[in-house]
Deep mutational scan, measured.
Amino acid sequence: QEELVKAFKALLKEEKFSSQGEIVAALQEQGFDNINQSKVSRMLTKFGAVRTRNAKMEMVYCLPAELGV
């Protein structure tokens, strides 16, 4: 569980995922086979993730800066 949270936060820091499906796929690539869209959705809510525009003006998920991840 701890490893999943770390990987999840690291992915969001990249600010390149525009959908929950993309986050699920990226986590599965890292070996988290039991991850699915509903789990990702709950984690996004739990950590207060928001959708914002990145440098390329794409809408992407990211974590609020005050979490200091």
Rank of each mutant, 00 (worst) to 15 (best):
V40Q: 00
G68K: 04
S38V: 11
A26G: 03
A26H: 13
E14M: 14
G31C: 03
M57R: 07
S41R: 14
A7N: 04
P64R: 06
E58M: 07
S38F: 13
E14D: 07
N36T: 12
I23C: 03
L12S: 00
A49C: 04
F17S: 05
A65N: 13
L44C: 03
E22K: 07
E66M: 06
E66L: 05
E15Y: 06
L11S: 02
Q30P: 02
N54Y: 03
Q37C: 05
A49I: 05
S18V: 11
V60K: 03
K46E: 15
L11P: 00
L44V: 05
F32N: 01
F47D: 01
A25G: 07
S41G: 10
Y61V: 02
V60C: 02
I35F: 04
V5A: 10
E3T: 10
V24F: 06
L44P: 00
A55M: 06
L12E: 00
L12G: 00
L67C: 08
L44W: 02
V50F: 11
S18M: 10
V50M: 09
A55I: 08
E22Q: 15
A26L: 05
A7T: 07
G31F: 03
Y61M: 02
A65S: 13
P64S: 05
K13W: 08
Q37V: 14
V40W: 01
K6D: 08
A49M: 02
V60L: 02
Q37M: 12
Q30G: 07
A26S: 07
T45D: 13
K56V: 07
K39Y: 09
S18R: 14
V50E: 07
G68L: 07
S38D: 14
E15C: 15
L11H: 03
V60Y: 04
V69F: 05
M59G: 03
E15F: 06
K46V: 10
E66S: 07
S19L: 08
V24S: 05
T52V: 14
G68P: 15
R53V: 15
M59D: 06
I23K: 00
F47S: 04
V40E: 00
S41Y: 11
M43T: 00
L27E: 00
K6G: 08
E15K: 07
S38K: 13
Y61R: 01
S38R: 15
K9S: 06
Q37T: 12
E29I: 12
V24D: 01
K13H: 08
L44G: 00
F32S: 00
A26C: 03
M59T: 06
A65C: 03
K56D: 12
R53Y: 15
I35G: 01
E22R: 06
E29T: 10
D33I: 12
M59H: 06
L44K: 00
V60S: 02
K39W: 11
G31S: 02
A65W: 11
F47M: 09
N36D: 11
K56P: 02
S41L: 08
D33S: 13
Q1S: 11
Q20W: 06
K16H: 05
R42Y: 15
R42L: 14
L44I: 09
T45H: 13
P64L: 04
L63A: 03
E58C: 02
K9Y: 13
S38G: 11
E14A: 13
F47E: 05
G31P: 00
K9Q: 09
A49W: 03
S18A: 10
K13C: 05
S18T: 12
R42I: 13
V60T: 03
F47A: 07
Y61T: 02
D33E: 12
F47I: 12
K9V: 14
I23Q: 00
F32W: 09
V40S: 01
K39E: 14
V5E: 15
E58D: 07
L63M: 09
S38Y: 15
Q28N: 09
F32C: 02
K16N: 06
E14R: 06
E58A: 05
M43F: 07
K46R: 11
E2D: 13
E2C: 15
T45W: 07
A49V: 07
C62W: 06
F8T: 03
A55S: 13
K46I: 10
V40Y: 00
K13G: 11
T52I: 12
R42A: 14
V40G: 00
S41C: 05
A65F: 12
